[in-house]
Design a protein around this nucleic acid. Structure first.
Length: 636
DNA sequence: TTAGGGTTAG
């Protein structure tokens, strides 16, 4: 990135202020200006702006800075920043207001470099920056991690005596924070005369943006009177850093502190619930929204509810929320479609997609990932291909790796492995380990070890392979008795310092999340849990369940494998669910990895024997176990 | 007569 720079701020010339003009023609013009500004302020969409803009040009007001300011602000939000940019280019002598309006427009669409470049052009034209343009460009510098340029802006603010201005200091902290310069952010914070809750919130965010939870908590603890936004920033930051339980604890403390949550707080808390699978708490938050009319069911809240119910296993409730929403945007639709896809409700997902198109809402690339996933989970091959082709043809969205991955999954699922392999070979983009892993998994499920080995070899030569793929590879070799190769994979993992992500399952009982690891002995009710497990194992054995011993990594003796399988985390979570919830209630478990073959067939039997519905969310999708069957049709 | 402190879903 290169910008023309002007380091010396002292050479700015201030524009001369025009003397009052008693000319009656001018007052007429002022009235016209007011009329245009008011017309522009009432605009709701592009179609309303264009005729007004035409009239502005026709009546010769196209150089009026006051009208232009409103026009630029509005057109960059309602039309496009390109449109605003064209207007700007035709202005003879743009002032600082107009520069600010367009920089804001660039920031809004994420064209940060354009915003910074425009600021430097303004400096080149010797226009004096004010606090507004400084805050705007600092926002661009922070988002673009443009440290050098931001520091220059800081110097200019110092020379102009603006560095202690409240808005400027906030944006300086934000800028330094985003660039990871915590010492500088801290220095600005410490120099502030009013270090109130707002400034502290910015500082908290600086730390949370970079995963420095402890430092953020330290600043947070020192804020004497915390308001809704401050609490929310903390909760949101904890969620972003994977500290879900801590986030929920903060939410409880916030209520004890009698601080009312707003829509944003609700969205953050629902996000924590959805990631943890905390359905009961999520339901409580939903009822809270219903009781407190100050919280609106807007796009964000509605979307967060749909996401929470889908990810916590209650897809029916997600559909009810979706139906209740008065206004839906593309994200609302995407969430609903991917929720339905995750639960194997493919037909319903396609119906929602078609309804969305009918409503005139344009799909995004995320929509197509969700729709293609739905096709894959429903085995809808022809429809999947039709939609895949329509992406670029009808919507101008070129398929990305994720979309191609869905097609590989789609073909792999129904056993058309060779076609899936050919599809990968003929792709214009390089396959990634996720896609190859999906094909390898399909080879394993359909027992095609020959192709599996071919894919495995490509995978081994592939650079970025995650622990999950290594484990899958090793399991594939182990399944076909190739212990030497399986051991080689494990050695490679060890060499690369890649640790197998430990399997972890959780279950919510009485609003509390209980987590279990493989063979976990930490739970206070471990005695009862293991007793239940033993009892179930006995019943399952009597029912003819033979443990599938090929899924364990090591080439150990069969009885040892059986022992290792017996204590997979999901089994412990299910056993805890069986002993701590009322008979006939649904057991919902969330697992961070994919469920293994043996656990899958065992859970089917447990559901049959106990008469319970068991819903398991794994890394990829939902499994609804009922009466000896699973909604995934044994493919996952 | 031109203007905003901090927090939001795929």
């Amino acid at each position: 990135m290169s910008y023309s720079t002007l380091a010396v701020v002292g050479c700015f010339t201030y524009p001369s202020t025009s003397a009052p003009n008693p000319n009656p023609k001018l007052s007429n013009s002022t009235a016209r200006r007011k009329e245009f500004i008011s017309l522009l302020k009432n605009c709701k969409d592009t179609n309303q702006i264009l005729p007004i803009h035409a009239k502005i040009i026709r009546t010769g007001h196209d150089q009026d800075p006051f009208i232009l300011f409103e026009l630029l602000r509005l057109s960059s939000t309602l039309c496009s920043v390109n449109y605003a940019s064209t207007i700007f280019q035709q202005v003879h002598n743009p002032n600082v207001f107009l520069y600010t309006a367009l920089i804001d427009g660039f920031v809004l669409v994420g064209s940060y470099s354009d915003g910074i470049r425009l600021y430097y052009r303004m400096i080149d034209r010797l226009i004096v920056p004010d606090k507004y343009v400084i805050t705007s460009v600092l926002k661009a510098c922070g988002s673009r991690f443009a440290l050098r340029e931001g520091k220059e802006v800081h110097c200019q603010a110092l020379k102009l005596g603006l560095s202690l201005n409240r808005s400027v200091t906030m944006k300086l902290m934000e800028f330094y924070g985003k660039c990871g310069e915590f010492d500088n952010a801290r220095k600005v914070f410490d120099k502030m005369t009013e270090r109130d809750v707002v400034a502290s919130t910015v500082m908290i965010n600086c730390f949370l943006d970079h995963g420095l939870v402890e430092q953020a908590v330290q600043v947070f603890d020192r804020v004497r009177v915390k308001d809704t936004v401050c609490w929310t920033a903390m909760i949101d930051g904890l969620v972003r850093n994977g500290e879900m339980n801590m986030a929920l604890e903060m939410f409880r403390e916030m209520q004890k502190d009698n601080v009312r949550p707003n829509e944003v707080t609700i969205v953050c808390v629902l996000s924590a619930c959805s990631q943890l699978g905390a359905l009961e708490l999520g339901r409580w938050v939903h009822s809270y929204i219903g009781k407190h009319h100050r919280i609106e069911l807007n796009h964000f809240v509605g979307g967060a509810l749909i996401n929470m119910y889908s990810r916590c296993g209650d897809i029916d409730e997600a559909e009810r929320v979706f139906a209740m929403m008065k206004e839906r945007n593309v994200i609302t639709y995407n969430l609903m479609i991917s929720g339905l896809a995750m639960h194997g409700k493919s037909i319903e997902a396609i119906q929602i997609f078609r309804g969305m198109i009918k409503q005139g809402i344009l799909p995004t690339s995320v929509t197509f990932v969700a729709v293609l996933n739905a096709c894959s989970h429903g085995g809808l091959v022809d429809l999947g291909f039709e939609i895949f082709r329509s992406m670029s043809k009808d919507y101008g969205i070129p398929p990305q790796i994720e979309h191609c991955g869905c097609i590989v999954d789609l073909l792999g699922r129904i056993g058309r492995l060779k076609e899936a392999y050919n599809f990968i070979q003929n792709m214009e983009i390089e396959p990634d380990h996720v896609m190859l892993g999906a094909l390898l998994s399909a080879c394993k499920i359909h027992g095609n070890f020959e192709l599996g080995e071919q894919v495995a070899r490509i995978l081994m030569n592939h650079g970025a392979v995650d622990s999950g793929t290594y484990v899958l590879l090793s399991n594939v070799y182990a399944s076909s008795g190739k212990w030497k190769e399986a051991a080689q994979i494990r050695a490679k993992m060890k060499e690369g310092g890649i640790l197998k992500e430990p399997g972890c399952s959780s279950i919510e009982v009485n609003n509390e999340i209980h987590e279990f690891l493989l063979g976990d002995l930490r739970h206070p009710q471990k005695g009862k849990i293991y007793k239940k497990l033993e009892e179930l194992n006995q019943v399952l054995k009597e029912a003819g369940h033979t443990p599938a011993t090929d899924v364990v990594l090591h080439d150990i003796e069969d009885w040892e494998k059986e022992q290792a399988l017996a204590i997979h985390s999901e089994r412990l979570a299910i056993c805890y669910g069986l002993i701590s919830t009322k008979p006939c209630t649904t057991i919902r478990v969330v697992k961070n990895l994919r469920v293994c073959d043996d656990c899958h067939s065992m859970i089917k039997l447990i559901a049959k024997i106990t008469g319970r519905k068991i819903v398991v969310r794994d890394r990829k999708r939902f499994h609804h176990f009922e009466n000896g069957k699973c909604s995934c049709g044994d493919y996952w």
